[in-house]
């Protein structure tokens, strides 16, 4: 019965396809246009990074990555990510719990406000911290008196990174938790679990893939942010340079091989991010199919 049915649908599909698709030459032209567009805009930039990075041989490549200024830039980037990702993870979990699990006045406004850093120009994100902590800023005189340096120093870089990355986890989790609803959590509470037990044993397993994706996006942006960090950093070599700022300095000094060698690190980071995204989509899709199959089999038996 099943085989006959699938045979019929596949025969129908073939007929349908021949009537409901464009002529072959139109398809070929469109495919060519898309491949040309993506080739020029996506694959050429990738090629140019590696061609330049390895242009003077593998020794020059590793030399550029291991010189002291590059290493200190890598350290600072890791530090900024190590502070901003956990902070924004906690914020994302809290915000999505409040917004997805409860109804309250102003929920839509709150959701819009959380997305604000996405639409604000990175330069403005840096500027606002200069206005607060800079020498002429609101807290400037007080900070100067107590000899605390925030702008043109590491704390400023961390603050700007936290600002530009704070929506990522929340934005992944809110729609996911809204779609999943409250039934499972309600059941857990009624069965006597406390809030933390409910969160760790019921909610967290349900949202783990979305959460992981949010963390990965947050981390990618934290490590790659340029504009905001550029405003607050002051570009002090070996002290307040992150990887992207180090790339800029090398490039402006016409040291192209080194600039692209360091840039290739960020290109690898981008590849990792894209790969992780695919893996997570595949995993969460598989989880969804497995759950559905369990449900069906349970219903049949």
């Amino acid at each position: 019965m099943h085989a006959v049915h699938s045979f019929q649908t596949s025969a129908q599909d073939t007929i349908r396809k021949s009537n409901l698709s464009e002529p072959l030459w139109v398809q070929r032209v469109l495919i060519f246009l898309v491949l040309a567009f993506l080739g020029i805009f996506l694959f050429l930039p990738i090629a140019v990074v590696f061609a330049n990075a390895f242009g003077k041989g593998i020794t020059a490549y590793f030399q550029a990555l291991t010189e002291p200024d590059a290493l200190s830039a890598i350290r600072l980037t890791l530090l900024a990510a190590a502070i901003s990702v956990p902070l924004n993870l906690v914020f994302g979990l809290a915000a999505s719990w409040a917004i997805a699990k409860f109804d309250f006045w102003g929920k839509k406004i709150l959701t819009t406000l959380i997305e604000l850093p996405f639409t604000v120009s990175p330069v403005i994100s840096g500027l606002v911290y200069v206005l607060i902590f800079g020498a002429q800023g609101l807290l400037g005189p007080w900070l100067l008196e107590h000899d605390i340096k925030i702008i043109f120093a590491v704390p400023g870089i961390v603050l700007a990174t936290v600002f530009v990355t704070f929506p990522f986890v929340a934005r992944e989790l809110i729609p996911l938790m809204q779609a999943q609803g409250n039934e499972e959590e309600n059941a857990a509470i009624i069965l006597g679990a406390n809030g933390w037990q409910t969160f760790f044993r019921v909610t967290l397993p349900n949202i783990k893939w979305g959460l992981l994706y949010g963390i990965i996006l947050c981390n990618a942006r934290a490590m790659g942010e340029f504009g905001a960090v550029s405003v607050v950093s002051g570009h002090i070599r070996g002290l307040t340079n992150t990887i992207p700022l180090h790339v800029e300095i090398l490039y402006n000094e016409y040291n192209f091989t080194a600039a692209f060698a360091v840039a290739s690190l960020l290109m690898f980071l981008a590849f990792l991010t894209l790969g992780a995204k695919r893996l997570i989509e595949w995993q969460s899709h598989r989880g969804f199919i497995l759950a559905e199959r369990n449900l069906n089999e349970g219903g049949n038996s």
């Binding site: 960020l266 981008a270 894209l274």
Partner: peptide
């Protein structure tokens, strides 16, 4: 998968790549 590259790639890298091209 590569369509998302501009989201994942730091803008400074995009800038120097495009300039080099």
């Amino acid at each position: 998968a590569f369509v998302d590259l501009p989201f994942a790639l730091p803008t400074a890298v995009a800038g120097i790549c495009l300039t080099a091209i």
